[in-house]
Design a protein around this nucleic acid. Structure first.
Length: 428
DNA sequence: TCTGGGGTCCTAGGACCC
DNA sequence: TCTGGGGTCCTAGGACCC
């Protein structure tokens, strides 16, 4: 069995780079991109990082820096980022025999055996250059025998300019040299909590974690951290999957652009989230057996009265019909609602997902829909989805209609350069 | 005034059964 | 009426990721 080799390709400052791509005038300007509702910073260009703008900081905390340094601020434009992501991934798929999309801006490539043709490092540079030429977005490439080490290699490629954005970490001695310099909390799978606990035990560097006693790690933490340590030692614990695993749950939730008080407005929001969740469900050819709805006030506003509830229901028959899902969601919402609160957020979660309208017979409940009804429902939903793909939100559920009081703030939205004719960039 | 959204996996503990 | 051990299944919550 041949030793596998993974490459992790990761776009640099992805959202900020997407915004800059269509604004050449901002080439050397610090840029930040905000979370939904223009809440906090979720991406920073290298100039913004150099100014010390931290990831996750609420935008109102950096008002003075924005003014002082002329930082350009953008609302999240997921239509744009999703489209750019697709272009990057298509380019990668043409280069490598196997590509695992890991997130909107990252993918693992299978480079096993490729070094018979070119060196890993040369291959990494070719990937980097091709993506830059085709799309215009900068990426870094980390190459190693496990995903965890490839992540680490990518971290080094980003951090050390001398690497030119590509690091081949297939050599075990090189792995150890790097790990000795990397703080343990930079390891993939070690977050804030674990990092703090490990440090308290004297495990400060990635190398110390790799050299830890495996059984002790498992006992004191969990098999997850044990696997991480094994991966740091070059033993792959996550294999390639031929078919991507189907989703286990689908969530649609949002903070509202402004607080809502009225049941009517919450109903509208929940109906909308339920509809969106149902669309995602059908896009993956899945059916939901369970549905959960939650509403809550703003927990960051400690002085205001707080209220938070969730309720769920098991469906007698797994469904992907928007009408059923909206109706059930509203049914859960109404008894939870209490007058006199400022609601800040709501959400709908679908669970118990299955690949077909499997019938969970319940001898005490009314009999499930006959097959012909299921077929009719599926045809109706297919027609609805097809119309909405052509022109978004042409057909919707009655309860969604209204003033849309819940809509999020997006004060600094850039145009949909690549997906709307009206927003195509113009060359003057 | 002002703090994202959408996922996955693992574990502990309770319910229930024999 | 009281008591025990062992197994499975489910759920809630915590940790992580981007």
């Amino acid at each position: 069995m041949k030793q596998p080799v993974f490459a992790l390709v990761d776009c640099n400052n992805f959202y900020a780079s997407c915004e800059k791509l269509f604004r050449p005038d901002l080439r050397n300007t610090p840029v930040v991109v905000l979370s939904n509702n223009d809440g906090c910073v979720v991406a920073r260009s290298k100039e913004a990082k150099a100014l010390g703008i931290k990831m996750g900081v609420p935008v109102h905390h950096i008002k003075s820096e924005i003014r002082q340094y002329g930082i350009q601020v953008f609302s999240s434009n997921y239509t744009l980022y999703g489209d750019m992501s697709r272009r990057v991934m298509t380019t990668l798929e043409a280069l490598a025999p196997r590509v695992d999309l890991y997130s909107i801006d990252e993918a693992f490539l299978d480079l096993t055996g490729i070094d018979r043709v070119v060196s890993f490092e040369e291959f990494g540079r070719a990937v980097k250059n091709t993506v830059y030429q085709n799309i215009g977005l900068p990426v870094c490439v980390g190459i190693a025998p496990t995903r965890t080490l490839a992540k680490l290699a990518n971290y080094a490629a980003k951090k050390y300019l001398a690497t030119g954005g590509v690091v081949d970490l297939t050599n075990p001695e090189r792995q150890r040299r790097l790990m000795a310099r990397v703080p343990v909390e930079e390891v993939w799978g070690v977050g804030r909590k674990l990092g703090a606990r490990l440090k308290a035990m004297g495990i400060v560097t990635a190398l110390q974690l790799a050299d830890s006693h495996l059984a002790t790690l498992r006992k004191q933490f969990s098999v997850v951290l044990e696997r991480t340590a094994r991966e740091l030692n070059g033993t792959p614990c996550v294999a390639w999957e031929d078919v991507p695993a189907p989703k286990k749950q689908i969530m649609c939730s949002r903070s509202f652009g402004k607080p809502l008080q009225k049941l009517r407005d919450l109903e509208e929001a929940v109906a909308h989230f339920a509809t969106r969740a149902a669309v995602k469900l059908r896009a993956g050819n899945q059916y939901a057996g369970e549905l959960m709805v939650f509403i809550r006030t703003n927990p960051f506003k400690g002085s205001a009265p707080q209220y938070s509830r969730s309720a769920s229901v098991k469906l007698i028959q797994a469904s992907q019909d928007s009408r059923v899902i909206v109706q059930q969601a509203l049914h859960l919402l109404r008894p939870m609602y209490r007058d006199g609160f400022n609601y800040a957020k709501a959400g709908v979660m679908l669970g118990d997902l299955v690949q077909e309208a499997g019938i969970q017979e319940d001898m005490f409940e009314s009999s499930p829909e006959p097959a012909s009804d299921v077929a009719r429902s599926e045809r109706l939903m297919a027609v609805m989805d097809a119309i909405n793909r052509k022109s978004r939100a042409t057909v919707y559920m009655a309860r969604e209609a209204g003033p849309a009081a819940y809509l999020m703030r997006r004060e600094y939205l850039s145009p949909a350069y690549t997906t709307r004719w009206d927003d195509l960039p113009k060359v003057h």
